[in-house]
Write a protein that binds this DNA or RNA. Structure first.
Length: 1051
RNA sequence: GGGUGAUUAGCUCAGUGGUAGAGCGCUUCGUUCACAUCGAAGAUGUCGGGGGUUCAAAUCCCUCAUCACCCACCA
């Protein structure tokens, strides 16, 4: 064997061998009738690459999967990737930008093709990285959240058609009324030009300003404004012909529909119900809006009056809904001020008619563009500046004394005495989590899941827990977070105005059966003009009852055919044809009508329908990951076998995005929990605790680390640091330490090999547990092995990964390498061939167990060692996981004896080091007193002790010679006669120090034992333990005192 | 504003009622035939402050301080 393990060379080779053997296939190594164990990988983005969080997340999954597989369970680790709507589209758009092209330079179809190509190019990237890490996924089942969607060239090895499953769920939920369409205020990302969900918005404290403006009362009216303090004393009273409004977003004033004050606010009671003027826009067409009351305004904040802009603020939206206030949209999809529709003058007049009582539909109101002509097309932030300037120039800003103009006259000369009130203020500003641009609340038509209606079982499941057929979430703290979010759940906006994703399976058509769609001239036939009038007027349908949802066009066609069948001739002959969009439909229907008017052939008439252009939120599809990957809606064997799955391992950052949605959706579709346990882990951070990010430059690439230290070391590090519920701060020195651990294991095995030890699964039972034969060291290490096996299982059972790793680390390094291998050296060199044979057998077994128990955490080096240390019938990946009990293997006597031997050796070493006895010097030792157990222990382990303590000989004496070092152990006293080198003062100091420490401990123990309440209340075994400890320390203290007394004689 | 978690050795962190541990770092020593990616021996803690419960508290409760994260609509 080489001196170290060559990870870079061996790991890929070993992985290939596993794959070749089909070692990771679902059910590989399963015992007949075994229980199942299934983990769904959290699908990484298809164009992504492996970061530290993935490495951590997948290491934990791999540990559980390998552990269960070795235990003979029917195991599936389902891999796959996510199409990641925005993220992936972004990658492709960025690529296009390099050659100065935009998405809109392509047709939708062509662009989506480009994305598919990108997906195809990068699909193997993440997989190769996971393989490098050692992830034992069943790659033959690799899934993709858009598999089977139009344009998919790759398909999936597992054959799942994820797309069909997603569409099917949409249709089902739609039919149950759980998915609906509506014009709502949503978070709009002006960069990607799409709606996003609440969760995709990051609220960040940003420095901003609050402006205060005067809204003049209509017709020059005035009122007495009275302000009182808490006691009701008048502190301000003045005549005003305006009302003050504060805003952080002046540009939205253009869309105000009202000013609201609290119903109990006495200051404004005189003017409630009156009109006031929005102080911006062309003078000739200033809009008047009503002053209304609503509970929302807080009288103590600002002026107590709030402007209501229903289309651009979530609070205002609610007020507007309650008060029937029109909601005027001011911006386009890119966040610029609208530049469409009629000129401002016309729009403002229309708005004024609404104030006067005109009722319009939502769509009609949406068509009104209230942006003044000079601001149209401007970016929203530029428009803000201009609005502020215009109002201020007009003298309608609230003014305050200029703080810079007070005080001494010389320096402030020329400065205005009054300035506009503009408060600097940090405001919570919403940003898109991907685009990083300011999110705009925008009134648009979107699709929503009625989450509140399906959330019940998801809450209930976690409340009742795994043992009652529900789901456990670990750690506990995350359960609260989960509940809090679900109990306050909002409708989930699932439509996105993107091109990459699952297109909403809904088709629209003109309403031919609706009211008002009639032949004006009652001549029994529609002509082109009549039809177009109707269509362009109001018979267009985008309303709820006028679209059709179906899995595909064929099904939709049948639905529309039914509707057409009820219409009068010739419309009932029209053919349903799919066209690109509403625009195309208008042209198509006009053209076909023209054709008909010429030919009078009813089969020439077409009825155009067009599909909803939106795609579904990525999380809608990944929310179906557990069933979609198992072949649902088909009742596949895998679905029956592995669903509900066993464990989900994921980071806390996607509890809402993903975990909660999966819970809701699996219950909605299957009526069943998706997993028994959710294990939520921490985020990986850099060694200073900072989130790793490219901009900070503190990103550790897991693959670089794997290159440098080997996958096993990286995995072991992550595992050892996986304590629940905290950040995981990673440093390379820690990884290096665990790399050293692999080397340590490697060399222990190397030592064994050099001494004729071979791997064996034969438990050396004949030597252990209360047998008369057998070396104590061998008996002892077998017992220790059983203890660590129990500890590892116990830890993994409870997802205490770090406990498992630390137990193994302490065992392999601290027990096997530090002690057992050293003990074995004299034994293997023994002239007694039986001892040699016994020790080889024991060591062979113990090292095998180390490999087995370490394999889930460090699969590569252990597999390599497994195959080099014996001819095996199977690979380690399929080796049988042990189940022996400590109770069966631990020999109490041997355990005691080895503990005694170890402490004797440690005492001698310590004394020698402190007395500066040359390390290599073998010295004689004297035995002053020793009880029977000690004598037996010495006799049985003489060779070991002598070797490890560097003792030359042992002789019994009555009196201690002058100038010797005392070694006090349980049941005996030894000494090292070192007259020539001993420093009496140093030895005295050493003994006194030890004694002082002992006395201190003893004091505590005695104190407890003399406390009657302790004796009465504490459990018996605790009292016994305390007594034993006190007695032992008493004894040791006595010996040390004796030694000090002897020293005193010498001196 | 609400919520959650954290505060333990120089650093990074384990430790859920029995009197405090690991890794790294540090000091001293070591060319012993598995390993210098090593070995041996050491030093370092009012377990954030205060109060309470208990025979016993790093651990449970209250409170204060500081930090971190999550959620939230104050114009």
């Amino acid at each position: 064997m080489e001196k170290t393990f060559n990870a870079a060379e061996a790991e890929p080779r070993i992985y290939a061998a596993w794959e070749k053997a089909g070692a990771f296939r679902a059910g590989a190594n399963a015992a007949p009738g075994a229980e199942t164990f299934c983990i769904m990988i959290p699908p990484p983005n298809v164009t992504g690459s492996l970061h530290m969080g993935h490495a951590f997340n997948n290491t934990l999954q791999d540990i559980l999967v390998r552990w269960h597989r070795m235990r003979g369970h029917d195991t599936l680790w389902q891999p796959g990737t996510d199409h990641a709507g925005i993220a992936t589209q972004m990658v492709v758009e960025r690529e296009l930008a390099r050659t100065n092209r935009r998405r809109t330079d392509f047709t939708r179809e062509d662009f989506v093709d480009l994305v598919w190509q990108q997906k195809h190019k990068s699909r193997s990237n993440i997989r190769e990285q996971l393989e490098r890490l050692g992830a034992s996924c069943d790659w033959s089942r690799e899934a993709f959240t858009m598999a089977g969607a139009p344009g998919d060239v790759d398909g999936t090895p597992g054959g799942q058609n994820f797309h069909d499953a997603v569409i099917r769920v949409f249709v089902d939920l739609y039919e149950k009324g759980l998915i609906y369409r509506g014009k709502r205020l949503v978070n709009w990302d002006p960069h990607f030009e799409t709606a996003i969900s609440d969760l995709e918005v990051e609220n960040v404290e940003t420095p901003g300003h609050m402006w205060h403006f005067k809204y003049p009362l209509a017709g020059g009216e005035s009122y007495t404004y009275v302000e009182r303090d808490e006691d009701g004393n008048v502190i301000l009273e003045e005549e005003r012909d305006w009302i003050a409004i504060a805003t952080t977003r002046p540009e939205t004033m253009l869309g105000d529909g009202a000013v609201a004050v609290h119903p109990g606010d006495a200051r404004y009671a005189p003017i409630v119900g009156k009109l006031c003027e929005i102080p911006v826009g062309p003078k000739a067409h200033r809009r008047l809006i009503p002053i209304i009351t609503d509970e929302y305004p807080d009288p103590d904040f600002g002026s107590g009056a709030v402007k209501i802009t229903g289309a651009h603020d979530f609070n205002d939206y609610a007020v507007a809904e309650r008060g029937g206030i029109p909601k005027y949209r001011l911006m386009d999809t890119r966040g610029a001020m609208r530049d469409d529709g009629a000129p401002y003058a016309e729009a403002a007049m229309k708005a004024q008619e609404i104030v006067a009582g005109l009722t319009l539909s939502d769509n009609e109101i949406d068509a009104i563009n209230l942006v003044p002509d000079d601001l149209r097309g401007l970016d929203r932030f530029e428009a803000r500046k201009r609005v502020v300037r215009q109002i201020t120039d007009e003298g309608l800003a609230v003014m305050v004394p200029n703080p810079d103009a007070s005080g001494d006259q010389e320096n402030t000369a020329g400065r205005p005495e009054w300035v506009p009130l503009v408060e600097a203020k940090t405001i919570m500003q919403p940003f898109g989590d991907r685009s990083k641009v300011v999110i705009e609340p925008m009134l648009t038509d979107q699709w929503f899941v009625d989450a509140a209606s399906i959330v019940g079982p998801a809450i209930e499941a976690v409340r009742k827990g795994k043992d009652n057929g529900g789901t456990d979430i670990l750690p506990e703290a995350d359960r609260k977070v989960y509940f809090h979010w679900l109990e306050n759940i909002e409708p989930w906006c699932i439509s996105r105005q993107l091109w990459w994703g699952h297109q909403v399976p809904v088709w629209y058509g003109f309403d031919l059966s609706g009211e008002g769609f009639a032949d004006d001239e009652a001549d029994g036939a529609l002509d082109e003009v009549e039809l177009l009038e109707l269509l362009s007027d109001q018979a267009l349908l985008k309303g709820d009852e006028r679209h059709h949802c179906a899995p595909d066009f064929g099904a939709v066609k049948a639905q529309f055919d039914d509707v057409l069948g009820t219409l009068p001739t010739p419309l009932n002959h029209a053919r349903v044809v799919e066209v690109a969009d509403r625009e195309a439909a208008l042209h198509a229907i006009a053209a076909s009508l023209a054709e008909y008017n010429v030919s009078q052939d009813p089969t020439q008439l077409i009825y155009p329908v067009w599909r909803d252009a939106d795609v579904l939120d990525t999380w809608f599809s990944s929310g179906l990951w557990p069933i979609g990957t198992l072949g649902w809606p088909d009742e596949t064997e895998e679905l029956k076998k592995y669903f509900p799955t066993s464990v989900l391992i994921t980071g806390f950052d996607i509890i809402f995005f993903w975990v909660a949605r999966m819970m809701m959706m699996q219950y909605a579709v299957m009526g069943e929990r998706p997993f028994d346990t959710v294990y939520v882990h921490a985020l990986v951070r850099d060694e200073k605790g900072k989130k790793m990010s490219k901009s900070l430059g503190n990103v550790l690439d897991p693959l670089d680390l794997v290159e440098e230290f080997g996958a096993d070391a990286v995995r072991f590090t992550l595992t050892a640091m996986a304590a629940m519920g905290r950040d995981l701060k990673l440093s390379t020195s820690r990884i290096a330490g665990y790399r050293n651990f692999t080397t340590k294991l490697w060399n222990a095995v190397r030592f064994a090999e050099m001494n004729g030890v071979t791997g064996t699964d034969a438990i050396p039972t004949q030597y252990i547990r209360d047998t008369d034969v057998g070396q104590t060291a061998n008996k002892w290490i077998v017992g220790e092995t059983a203890k660590v096996r129990e500890a590892v299982d116990e830890a993994l059972e409870h997802f205490r990964f770090n406990d498992a790793a630390n137990a193994l680390y302490a065992f392999v390094w601290g027990k096997v390498c530090d002690w057992y291998v050293e003990f074995a050296k004299p034994l293997l060199a023994s002239e007694d061939t039986e001892i040699v044979r016994e020790t080889r057998a024991t060591m062979g077994w113990v090292l095998d167990q180390c490999m087995i128990l370490l394999h889930p955490i460090m699969p590569f080096i252990t597999e390599e060692l497994w195959q080099t240390t014996a001819k095996r019938g199977n690979m380690l990946v399929h080796a049988a996981w042990p189940s022996y009990q400590a109770a069966d293997f631990v020999d109490e006597k041997a355990d005691h004896e080895m503990t005694w031997v170890i402490s004797l050796i440690e005492e001698v070493r310590s004394a020698r080091a402190q007395m500066h006895v040359p390390a290599g010097l073998h010295i004689p030792m004297l035995q002053l007193e020793l009880d029977a157990a000690g004598r037996a222990a010495w006799d049985r382990n003489e060779a070991l002790i002598k070797r490890l303590a560097r003792v030359e000989s042992l002789s019994e004496i009555r009196d201690m010679p002058k100038g010797a070092i005392t070694i006090a152990v349980d049941g005996g006293t030894f000494c090292l006669p070192l007259a020539e080198i001993i420093d009496v003062a140093a030895e005295k100091a050493r003994l006194e120090k030890t004694l002082a420490k002992l006395e201190k401990e003893l004091g505590g123990l005695r104190g407890r034992l003399s406390n009657e309440k302790f004796l009465a209340s504490a459990p018996e075994d605790v009292v016994d333990e305390t007594r034993d400890a006190a007695a032992a320390k008493d004894d040791e203290a006595a010996k040390l005192k004796a030694a000090l007394a002897r020293l005193a004689e010498v001196a």
